[in-house]
Design a binder for these strands. Structure first.
Length: 192
DNA sequence: CGGCCGATCCACT
DNA sequence: GTGGATCGGCCGA
């Protein structure tokens, strides 16, 4: 299966990209171990005009700089000192849009994922939550700023097209500080 | 340089 | 439902 083309990430509508990522397959080959999973939950972060975004107001810091790169690279950061959150940078250079991957469903490399997650049994919600996603795929700060067109972390077409009727749209999680923008319908989940 | 805090998760009550 | 874990980044002095 081939990787998503560069054009996929360069589009200007990050909310649409967030929706389109549902049902796609995310793959990682880290420490010599391959695994893949279907993306089941995402959130869009719409850059300088989005109070929930790290780049709100055009803020540029050492951490957020990668969000201003041309789409198709990773943005990984540490949250609460414990969890790595994995984002896909989108849009053209200097437009700091990103999509947070919040949930996946394991496909290949399930034994590897179970071991990383320290689980005996992989339950339905075992990979629901951005911290869990990174743990399952072995993503850490070492995987920040990677191209999605290389062979560490990449995204492929899924097996099936996802119809709008299969997607639940809601507001984003954990961003109460974003005031009215906290209510925007930027969260996409695959229904079960 | 010091202090605060977060796009979370899990164990425990 | 609640609180503790745990640390890099950000900001103000």
């Amino acid at each position: 299966m081939s990787k998503l083309p560069a054009d996929f990430y360069l589009r200007s509508d990050v909310v649409q990209i967030s929706r389109d990522l549902i049902g796609k397959r995310i793959c990682s080959r880290i420490n010599g171990e391959y695994c893949s999973a279907i993306i089941t939950e995402t959130e869009a972060y719409a850059g300088v005009e989005d109070k929930a975004s790290h780049a709100y107001g055009g803020k540029r810091t050492k951490r957020t700089e990668i969000m201003y790169a041309k789409g198709g690279v990773t943005y990984v950061y540490l949250c609460y000192g414990i969890h790595y959150l994995f984002n896909v940078v989108t849009n053209q250079e200097d437009i700091p849009h990103a999509v947070l991957i919040r949930g996946i469903k394991a496909e290949e490399g399930i034994a590897t994922i179970q071991r990383r997650r320290k689980l005996n049994l992989l339950k339905k919600d075992s990979l629901s939550g951005p911290g869990k996603v990174s743990q399952a795929l072995a993503i850490t700060l070492a995987h920040n700023k990677l191209s999605l067109h290389e062979d560490k972390i990449w995204i492929e077409e899924g097996n099936t097209q996802i119809d709008d009727s299969e997607i639940l749209i809601s507001s984003r999680i954990g961003i109460d500080y974003a005031e009215e923008d906290a209510l925007l319908p930027y969260r996409f989940q695959l229904k079960e």
